[in-house]
């Protein structure tokens, strides 16, 4: 097939992005390092590993979600997925008591949470996407309001649990890049790897799903089954990224749309790696600039919310104007 007129050849693009991402990782590991190298590399290495994993998971979950909903403005977080995960975490503490949950092996806890997340999101979003909701704007609004509902419910339960006790558990439950559980990281990496293999093998089906429901059915794809499978995949990926760093509403939107701009293709074998590399690059370089150069440790998510929100507004207004 002839190459696209506008974009770089895919191999060059991926190599270039890969190079940049690798460079940002090396810079992040080394810039401003003082003292024992082995300590710094282990400390920062864990952080880098978490960021790479999270960037990859968010990029992949967003692209998949946009493909199955056939829409480039919806993301799992806009539809309340990560708020749902937080709610499940909170309900777990509420039901079993903080002491019991804190005593769990983090891997076991993570496993239970992911299972609950997949089950609930499957039920909820099967209902949402079964066609009972006509119109994209309704769907989006319902998703956003569900997000508020889940967040308020979590807030409610967190207050109902003895407030003092909860503070103790909160630290253990809600991680950030600066305090990543190495065991959880390993498990997450394995989960993401397994999911990636499945998705990679489904890339052809995904290309067809992106054409929309009618076209996909016409081409003989079992639309319902494939969409539900991908929804489960998305739930797992969201659980991974939320468990590691917490919710980042607009990051996926930002990354996915950057990737579409860069590659201008429908082929998931190309979009997925590009989106993942863009995510890693944005996270690493953003963190590098904010943390090492400007000294704003922890502000990255706020900056991403700001930029992502503006991108969302622009897309929304431009689409409506068309």
């Amino acid at each position: 097939m002839p190459p696209d007129r506008r974009s770089l050849p895919p191999a060059v693009l991926i190599a270039g992005l890969g190079g940049l991402a690798a460079a940002s990782i090396v810079l992040f590991l080394t810039v401003g390092a003082k003292g024992s190298w082995s300590f710094i590399l282990t400390f920062r290495g864990t952080k880098v590993a978490a960021m790479v994993l999270v960037g990859y998971a968010i990029a992949m979950s967003t692209v998949l979600f946009q493909t199955i909903t056939n829409n480039r403005i919806l993301t799992p977080s806009i539809m309340g997925f990560d708020a749902l995960y937080r709610l499940i975490q909170t309900v777990l503490v509420f039901q079993l008591g903080s002491a019991a949950v804190a005593g769990f092996d983090p891997r076991l806890r993570f496993g239970i949470e992911v299972a609950a997340m997949v089950a609930f999101s499957w039920l909820l979003y099967r209902w949402l996407f079964s066609g009972s909701l006509r119109g994209l704007h309704l769907l989006m609004l319902v998703g956003i309001v569900f997000g508020v509902l889940f967040r308020s419910l979590s807030g409610f339960l967190q207050r109902v649990i003895d407030p003092n006790e909860f503070l103790v558990v909160q630290d253990r439950l809600f991680a950030s890049f600066n305090r990543v559980d190495a065991q959880l990281l390993a498990v997450s990496a394995l989960v993401v790897l397994a999911v990636s293999v499945v998705v990679w093998r489904k890339a052809g089906v995904l290309d067809v799903l992106a054409l929309g429901r009618d076209a996909a059915i016409n081409l003989g794809v079992d639309h319902r089954r494939e969409v539900m499978q991908m929804l489960v995949t998305v739930s797992i990926l969201v659980a991974v990224s939320t468990a590691l760093v917490g919710p980042v509403t607009f990051f996926g939107l930002l990354v996915a749309n950057l990737a579409y701009l860069l590659v201008d293709t429908h082929r998931h074998r190309l979009i997925l790696p590009v989106a993942a590399l863009v995510a890693i690059l944005v996270l690493m370089s953003g963190q590098l600039v904010l943390e090492r150069l400007l000294g704003f440790n922890g502000a990255l998510s706020i900056v991403i919310e700001f930029l992502g929100g503006i991108v969302f507004l622009i897309i929304l207004v431009r689409r409506a104007a068309r």
Binding site: P2, G212, A215, L219, G220, V221, D222, D264, H266
Partner: peptide, 28 residues
Amino acid sequence: TPGDVLARHLSILRQDNQMTARLTVRDL
């Protein structure tokens, strides 16, 4: 009948075909 079997015997085009994926004519 499984969808993929039917897709080799019958094809359908509805009106108003909106597509979010940016495809070339040949790709489509």
